[in-house]
Write a protein that binds this DNA or RNA. Structure first.
Lengths: 338, 338
DNA sequence: CTGAAAGCGCTAACAG
DNA sequence: CTGTTAGCGCTTTCAG
């Protein structure tokens, strides 16, 4: 019953509420016989602990906030799953907040989460210039939080990253090894860490390997299927066609796949398409997508671990953990046709 | 600051804590000048309300629990998105709980959610015999909860359903209109409402239309891609081949698509495949999946509305809301080849 | 090892 | 309209 309190339990067990509290929290030795009587009273009364009252005293709620753009986006869904798993393992719950990358919404969520006294927040905000986080950090530098896949200038916050340069380089190396020289690049929101670093990686690779970069081959849209579809169409209407398209995420790549199909361009025979992320979807496309796999599960799990460690005071100076992506070759890429 | 309380605010504003509380809650008239002084004090102190303390008194947390099998499953992800949106609209947060349909895990989540005094729970448990829910209902019949896509025997609980018979019938009607007579049926976990009703719908349709049902054509697996793949393979190795496969969800259909491709069977020319749900994935398969669309967004939104209404006492006798599915014809189905 | 008592920060009568 | 007061249900000294 929700109405019963430790007073009821105490009375029934013939002990004081302190003793009841002690067995509830395992906080200090309680005579075995008393512990048993308390446990039995709890059982018989169907007592349900009020964790709100406990939190009011203990100053922790064992609840985490997770701020993401959109849980219906498979990329975030997978991270969320990992976060929730790791949280549950450590007896934390997670409140999920969809912001659609709207800073106003995000600010409102942050405020309410703090008012509900959640213990920490995990941000997956892609934006590199997120003033909400910056502000929170400045006002409460000690508040436990961690960033996934992003960095905020001037904020020493725990962060989990996947190495974008490496991923991009691997992909480009692979593509060029197949003989591709004209490689189109479609990326998403430019104010995003992923966009920046992947674009930089693309440019770098070309430069370091003495390949000229053609600005006509570089298009910017959004990290969405629709956007990938449109930008790929643009690319495929160029006079001097690319032989491969490197998409800055899988959704873009999926859109590109569709554009190619619609235009009667065979993948991978006439055009190679390479994605980024390795979301679950990438297995069910036809052809199956070659992609740079981000260790999303690890990223989520690691992030959850980090906030929890910080909440529990088992962590001092902020740290940036950089995980390694790896190329997953499937069927959407092949040797350039001469 | 998190350390400041209404006492600090009251002192700074030169009023009593009651007045502060009143402006915070807009609970009763406060002289305009006082309200402003309070607001200003709040601003200057950076006061952050402690909603735990408030909840302890008010007996509500403005938090919902959402119990699902797996947020990484696009079907649940979409529902979750809708639930969270509607919740946020009504100033509720949602705690997401992944159970993998494990009743033990679920029971643990229910217990902790209640201890955290969340205001209501939305269950998307597919199982028809969920003792956790039954038990909760028996112990706390007034506790606000709603079921999505399932029913629990003997429990008068608010429920949101999509009409499985109708969906199945539509699909079968469409398939037979294309000339299909041997229609394979692959479904998932048999203890699931969706499985039962869709299977029943399949049988019904055949019976009502004087078509004989062949038990060899009816296979049961899990609601997963992998399972669809395997069962479709079985179906496609039969002596007397089906000309169409009706899958009880899209994941199964996607698996079937892959099986067909692997076996060199052309869809839809040689085999029609029809799914159920219309998850986002169903647009990106090749060919694009014909499917029975469940209004997942509406289901989630409606469910959230219902719990919130019940929480707010704006709802009396439990209700079963049945939404209508609709057939979405895409490219994975076609006329039977003679 | 146990109990009494003092809060945690807030809301809700109840007087005024 | 405002302040006083008594809790909400629990944890945590502090004595014993």
């Amino acid at each position: 019953m929700a109405g019963t309190t430790i007073y009821d339990v105490a009375k029934k067990a013939g002990v004081s509420i302190s003793t009841v509290s002690r067995v509830l929290n395992n906080s200090s030795r309680v005579k075995e016989s008393n512990r048993e009587r308390v446990l039995q009273a709890i059982e018989e009364l169907g007592y349900e602990r009020n964790l709100l009252a406990a939190a009011l005293m203990k100053k922790n709620t064992h609840t985490l906030g997770l701020i993401i753009a959109d849980i219906a986006n498979p990329f975030y869904a997978e991270i969320t799953r990992a976060v929730e798993d790791k949280a549950a393992e450590n007896h934390f719950n997670v409140i999920v907040c969809n912001t659609d990358n709207d800073l106003k919404k995000e600010a409102a969520y942050i405020a309410i989460l703090r008012q509900k006294r959640i213990d920490g927040i995990i941000f997956t905000t892609p934006e590199i210039n997120n003033n909400n986080i910056k502000k929170l950090y400045e006002e409460q530098p000690d508040f436990p939080m961690v960033l996934i896949g992003s960095r905020i200038e001037g904020c020493a916050i725990d962060t989990v990253l996947a190495n974008n340069y490496l991923g991009t380089t691997e992909a480009m190396k692979y593509l060029t090894s197949l003989g591709h020289k004209r490689i189109g690049f479609i990326y998403g929101l430019p104010t995003t860490l992923s966009s920046r670093e992947r674009l930089a990686g693309y440019h770098n690779y070309l430069a370091e390997n003495g390949m000229k970069s053609d600005s006509k081959l570089i298009l910017c849209g959004a990290f969405k299927i629709e956007s990938g579809y449109q930008k790929a169409k643009e690319l495929l209407q160029l006079e001097n066609l690319p032989t491969a398209i490197f998409a800055a995420n899988d959704l873009i790549a999926i859109g590109a796949l569709e554009a190619a199909r619609e235009m009667g361009i065979e993948v991978p025979n006439e055009l190679s398409i390479l994605g980024y992320d390795n979301i679950n979807l990438s297995t069910i496309t036809y052809p199956k997508l070659t992609t740079v796999a981000q260790p999303m599960m690890e990223m989520g799990a690691r992030a959850a671990e980090m906030v929890i460690e910080r909440i529990q005071g088992r962590r001092s100076s902020p740290e940036v953990v950089t995980l390694l992506p790896r190329l997953v070759v499937r069927d959407s890429t092949g040797p350039v046709r001469r």
